[in-house]
């Protein structure tokens, strides 16, 4: 269990490089427990890299990432169980149906009666009607909904949302806002990276603006 007073996310002088380019450079930041964070910045400013670092999909080149008081490198598996990432890539198997995609994840997480959990989540994101169609035929918006269902399956303590409103129609954006608000109400800390600053500002208490991989005043 994380220490009660530990910040939800603490970055200590974190850097990540790709070859000769710094994607994130010497970033130090602490997100107080119970607050949600809006990440802003232009394309290529390091938002996605930062989220992937926090999700432990990448390990930092230098510095330390702490999630809920745990080191993201040393205690990686524990951090992975607490964190869920909604990324640009949907993590969905194209050849499986919506229901099967979620069932696979439920089995990996050790959830009892995985299929029931999966269909309950499909109802929640409004995909019941397409639960038995393969993902290959899904529109971008439906994929996004299924990806968010995948995230909700984990009931994460920290949800990382990379452009959750991208490719969604106005109704979808509204639904997504509802889901994020629900997550927050359930005690999940949300880190949101988006270009839609208005939506983001209404959902998050804190804001971090990135430019060329470092924090700047917005």
């Amino acid at each position: 269990m994380p220490a009660p007073s530990a910040p939800a996310l603490a970055l200590h002088d974190v850097s990540k490089r790709y070859g000769r380019r710094w994607a994130v450079a010497r970033l130090t930041y602490a997100l107080p427990a119970g607050r949600s964070l809006l990440l802003t910045g232009h394309n290529g400013s390091g938002k996605t890299t930062l989220l992937r670092l926090v999700a432990t999909a990448l390990s930092p080149t230098a510095g330390r990432v702490e999630v809920l008081g745990r080191d993201a490198v040393a205690d990686r598996d524990a951090v992975r169980r607490d964190v869920a990432l909604l990324s640009h890539a949907s993590f969905l198997y194209e050849d499986l149906t919506a229901l099967q995609n979620l069932t696979v994840l439920a089995r990996l997480l050790g959830i009892p009666s995985p299929e029931d959990a999966a269909s309950a989540l499909l109802t929640r994101v409004g995909l019941t009607r397409r639960s038995d169609s393969p993902v290959r035929g899904f529109s971008a918006g439906m994929r996004k909904r299924l990806a968010i269902a995948r995230l909700l399956m984990k009931t994460p303590a920290l949800a990382l949302l990379d452009e959750p409103f991208g490719e969604l129609d106005p109704q979808g954006i509204h639904d997504m806002e509802g889901i994020i608000a629900e997550l927050k109400a359930g005690g999940t800390t949300v880190i949101l990276a988006t270009h839609l600053i208005e939506q983001g500002m209404s959902l998050c208490e804190e804001r971090l603006h990135l430019q060329d991989g470092r924090a700047v005043a917005a």
């Binding site: 490089r17 000769r20 060329d212």
Partner: peptide
């Protein structure tokens, strides 16, 4: 390959 990247803009 791993040299310090050029100063960022």
């Amino acid at each position: 390959e791993m040299a310090l990247p050029d100063a960022l803009p």
